[in-house]
């Protein structure tokens, strides 16, 4: 059985608007509708979509703090909204824009309070804390009150806080928002290692597509409350009709290269740009070019995932 199983999930909100003096109009907003997907243990899944697509609403239902209007929902064999407390012991949640730490407490005290909340055995707690503090380089901050931490330090503190009880599933909501490039890189590396070593399932919502490219084999794209794509990152390229580019440096300037399966987009002296479908293999193309022309150098440019997703959103709209 999949770790997370969602079938035909729907959540509606009734929105009342002022429609004149003392008059109110009621309208029903479908934040999530007919959403179906399942995630196996150990997967790292990117959950992406434009603002207001229903990402947070989904996460709130998956964690049990929001009750679905209809549909099936199982996480780790539990029904989240009914068994919220049991489920909470088995999941970790990290928000980029909120903190689970206590502002007025030193980091260490926050962790100790969380140990009590999740009833983590002393031995396990110390092991985990030592490990995460070392990996996330938090040793010098343990006695600093949270309000004095930098954003990057606070984020690492929050990640540690979410993992002290060995959750099977870690939900990350914009974990890298506002972080600098070095911090982002370190965080991604840590998450990859976490998944590899402990098999923690990650569900990541983000607007930073580099997070997805660095971490997720699978992406679910949601728009207007429903899934518009679910599959590999490579497949997303194919679906979006995106192309890769083969950049060929010929020994001499010559006419546009003519090989099957690719077309020349641009010629600039001896350098030529050939585009070919993103899901096609580059190997036969490279072989064909190399056998017919005198090639000095070759390189391949991957398509920009942001373009692909932008394309997908605009189709959905």
């Amino acid at each position: 059985m999949p770790l997370i199983d969602v079938a035909g999930l729907e959540r509606t909100f009734v929105v009342r608007r002022r429609a004149g003096f003392m008059r109110r109009s009621k309208s029903v907003v479908r934040a999530v509708q007919d959403l179906t997907f399942s995630i196996e243990a150990g997967e790292m899944v990117g959950y992406i979509g434009p603002n207001g697509a229903g990402k947070s609403t989904t996460i709130k239902m998956l964690t049990g703090i929001l009750v679905p209007t209809s549909g099936e929902l199982r996480v780790a064999g539990l029904e989240p909204s009914r068994q919220r407390t049991d489920l909470a012991r088995r999941i970790g949640v990290v928000f980029g824009q909120r903190t689970t730490l206590w502002w007025d407490l030193p980091l260490r005290d926050s962790f100790e309070l969380l140990q009590k909340i999740y009833r983590v055995p002393d031995q396990r707690f110390r092991e985990n804390l030592d490990r995460f503090v070392e990996l996330l380089d938090l040793g010098d901050q343990l006695d600093t009150p949270v309000r004095q931490l930098s954003l990057g330090q606070r984020m690492r503190g929050d990640i540690t806080a979410a993992l002290l009880h060995d959750p099977e599933i870690l939900y990350l909501d914009e974990p890298t928002i506002g972080l600098d490039v070095v911090s982002k890189g370190r965080l991604r590396e840590f998450l990859r290692a976490l998944n590899a070593e402990r098999g923690t399932t990650l569900l990541l919502t983000t607007h930073d597509l580099q997070d997805i490219e660095a971490l997720c084999d699978r992406v679910i794209v949601i728009d207007h409350g429903t899934s518009v794509y679910d599959g590999t990152l490579a497949g997303l390229h194919a679906q979006g009709g995106s192309t890769r580019t083969l950049v060929v440096d010929l020994v001499d300037t010559g006419p546009p290269i003519d090989v099957p399966g690719a077309e020349v987009r641009k010629v600039e002296g001896p350098r030529q740009w050939l585009s070919f479908p993103a899901d096609a293999s580059a190997a036969p193309l490279v072989a064909a070019v190399a056998s017919a022309y005198d090639v000095a150098d070759l390189s391949i440019q991957e398509p920009d995932i942001e373009d692909v997703i932008r394309e997908l959103y605009s189709h959905g709209a």
Binding site: T63, I65, R84, T85, V93, R98, T100, I117
Partner: peptide
């Protein structure tokens, strides 16, 4: 922020 309180098993 109450969401965070609700995520906890307490």
């Amino acid at each position: 922020d109450v969401a965070i309180d609700l995520y906890r098993p307490v």
